[in-house]
Each structure stands twice: as C-alpha cells, then as structure tokens.
C-alpha cells in the first residue's frame, strides 16, 4: 500500500508535526476521548440501579403493612414492580457492561470477566442461603430483612473489588456506602428497612452516577 492512498485529508489528523504544547494537548485530549468512549456507559448503569433501588424498594415499602403512610399498593404488585426493575437493571448492566471492554483482549479482559461472574456467584449465594434460612423456619418478616441486606453486602463488596481492580475512588466510596446501608437497614426493622434501602442505597447510586458523569465530561487529568 502506498502512503496517503485514502487519506481524507485535510480533515483527518495528518503528518504535520505539532508544537510541543499542541502535542501534549493532543495526547491529553485523545486519552480523555478514549476514557469517555470506553466508560461512557458506566454512569448509565449506575443511574439504572439508582432507579431500580429507589423505585423498587419504595414500592416494597408501600406494599407492606405499616409501610408507606400516604398510599399503599398490593404486596403482589409491589413485588412484581421490584422484580421487574431489578431484572431490567441486570439486563441493562450486562449489555452496557459487556460493551465497556469490547475489542480489548488480555489481562484486563480476564479481570472484567471475573468481575461479571462475581455478581452472579454472589447473588446466587445470597438466594441459596435465603432458601436454607426459610427451610430452617425463618418467617417472612425475617427474610424481608435478610434479602436486601444480603444483596447489599454482595453489591458493596463487588464495588470494592471493582475499586481495587480499576483503582477507582468513586467505586470505593460507593462500595462502602452500599455495604453500610446493607448493615444498618435491618436495624430499622421491616418494612422500614425498605425505605432505608430506597433512600440511602438508591441515593448513593444516583450520586455515584452524577459524579462519574461529571468526571468523564471534565476529564480526570
């Protein structure tokens, strides 16, 4: 192939050597653009989880007796809303998350796959323990404290793992908050624990989404 065969110059970046400050600006601009293109979906994932937790746990709180004092919805409907939101959030996360590292192969692809698998393993374990507890005689009041707390613990720890993998302070803060929310929510008793999950958990996801969006559009360097 000969040089410059299908250059759409001059619009394309061409060979003219830039000055030192232009060159440094070009490097920074390009690395910011790469970061935006690769991580641009992450705030959306966090935003979807903010909605799933905020609206989902609010629905559950409104479904239980002694929950929402302003209005109530049948528990079956609340459970369906909650389930649909969580499943929707999982699907969106899997689809958007898989696009983050697309086209890249190597050590980081392995890390990404382990991260993805950890969500399934963690959620599966919480579910299995829940079944065992129910079989051992735990009533529905106890289980309505256990499940949100168990999933919070898993989510919190996986965000902490993500923070370690990608050296992300955003994920570190989010992981700690989610884990702590999981720890304190059961102390409020059922059904108020759902309100705690909705406000503090959903709120943490929302703030994380906004912070990440802001840092991506500004650039970290």
């Amino acid at each position: 192939m000969t040089d410059h065969t299908d250059h759409p110059a001059p619009t394309d970046h061409d060979d003219a050597p830039p000055s030192a400050d232009e060159a440094l600006a070009l490097i920074r601009e390009q690395q910011r653009s790469v970061e935006r293109k690769q991580l641009g979906g992450i705030p959306w994932i966090l935003g979807i989880w903010a909605i799933a937790w905020g609206a989902g746990f609010f629905a559950l709180w409104s479904g239980y007796d002694g929950g929402n004092p302003w209005f109530s919805i049948p528990l079956g409907v609340a459970g369906t809303i909650f389930g649909a939101l969580i499943v929707g959030a999982i699907v969106v996360s899997a689809v958007v998350g898989a696009r983050v590292g697309r086209g890249i192969q190597g050590a980081s692809a392995f890390s990404g796959a382990v991260y993805g698998i950890s969500w399934m393993v963690g959620s599966g374990v919480v579910f299995a323990i829940g079944i065992a507890l129910t079989r051992a005689g735990a009533d529905s009041a106890v289980m309505s404290l256990y499940y949100p707390a168990g999933y919070s613990l898993v989510a919190g720890l996986i965000y902490l793992m993500g923070a370690a993998l990608w050296r992300s302070v955003d994920q570190l803060v989010l992981g700690i908050i989610i884990a702590v929310v999981g720890a304190i929510a059961p102390f409020f008793g059922a059904p108020t624990n759902n309100l705690v999950m909705a406000v503090l958990g959903g709120g943490a996801f929302l703030v994380a989404a906004l912070v990440m969006q802001l840092s991506l559009s500004r650039g970290r360097s």
Partner: peptide
C-alpha cells in the same frame, strides 16, 4: 511526533500492559 501517530500511541498507551 506526528499528530496521527501521537494519537495512536496515546490510545494504545492507555491500555493496560499486556492488553
């Protein structure tokens, strides 16, 4: 030190080593 190759290098350098 040419705009295009500088951008290519910057992009490849942003990948983790071994990727």
């Amino acid at each position: 030190h040419a705009a295009a190759r500088l951008r290519i290098s910057a992009t490849l350098a942003s990948l983790d080593e071994g990727d």
